[in-house]
């Protein structure tokens, strides 16, 4: 199958974020970057599908400034065949502006399957995948936790609150992947060497109109320090008393 995977460069979430002087973005000094968690699952999903189902091509696409080439190279070192950077000096806050550019790139690519992460861990929107599907008028299943493909038909499971649904559709289609799908593999040394020679094309991003601007970013209020009530089962009565009289949740 010819599979495209859209990946976003995001900072490592284990950071203690600081707000930049502008007040409307995080301070980027010292941040480490990787592809977003679910985008890694999506790359892995594509690789496994093509490994299992015989000859295919996995193309990774990222929109952003030149630094996104780092994440594209990582995907290539995992095993993707080629990469496309949709070059823009920044990544818009408006998911529809991003989806418009991705759709323009994907439209004539002849892909059987286009994969997205359920949501990018930085923006946490979960909008770019289904928006792109809408712009391309393709069948779309969002937030899937398992996916099977046979004879041009896909079966996917989606987790709902306290329930799940199984959906069916034909390819070509768009799928956004959630927890439950395979985790990203670590690139091998051989993979890293091979990636250096794989094609990485750069094209200008044809961004859509932007209707969303970031006014401000702030850190959420810190939780007040708690206390250790005691040790072992002997501490239970005091805990229950506090839950009743102080926290009023019992």
């Amino acid at each position: 199958m010819k599979i495209a995977v859209c990946i976003k460069r995001v900072p490592d979430m284990e950071t203690r974020f600081k707000i930049a002087a502008s007040g409307s973005s995080v301070d980027e000094t010292g941040l480490k970057y990787d592809m977003s968690d679910f985008d890694g699952y999506a790359v892995e999903t594509a690789l496994q599908l093509n490994e299992k189902q015989g000859p295919g091509e996995t193309v990774v696409i990222s929109l952003g400034p030149d630094v996104v080439q780092e994440q594209l190279r990582k995907a290539l070192s995992m095993g993707a065949d080629r990469a496309v950077q949709l070059k823009s000096d920044r990544v818009p806050a408006d998911g529809l502006a991003i989806a418009t550019a991705l759709a323009a790139e994907l439209k004539s690519g002849g892909y059987d399957l286009i994969l997205f992460g359920r949501q990018a861990v930085d923006s946490a929107n979960a909008t770019v995948g289904p928006m792109t599907a809408e712009l391309l008028d393709l069948p779309c299943a969002t937030a899937v936790s398992s996916l099977e493909i046979a004879n041009g038909r896909a079966t996917a499971r989606r987790e709902l609150e306290g329930a799940a649904e199984v959906v069916e559709f034909s390819l070509p289609a768009i799928v956004s992947v959630d927890e439950g799908m395979p985790r990203a593999r670590y690139p091998s040394l051989k993979g890293i060497m091979a990636a250096k020679k794989k094609p990485l094309e750069v094209r200008p991003a044809q961004l859509g109109e932007e209707r969303i601007t970031i006014e401000k970013m702030e850190l959420p209020p810190e939780r007040a320090a708690g206390r250790i009530v005691g040790e072992g089962p002997a501490a239970v009565p005091e805990l229950v008393r506090l839950l009743h009289t102080e926290a009023k949740v019992l």
């Binding site: 250790i228 072992g232 926290a247």
Partner: peptide, 28 residues
Amino acid sequence: IFKVADYGIVGDVVEILPVLTAAVKEAR
């Protein structure tokens, strides 16, 4: 986890849970 917890108990969860369950039942 104790850095975000309002109330903590240090100990073996397998020992503590049945006691907590009984106490919550009684309180309710």
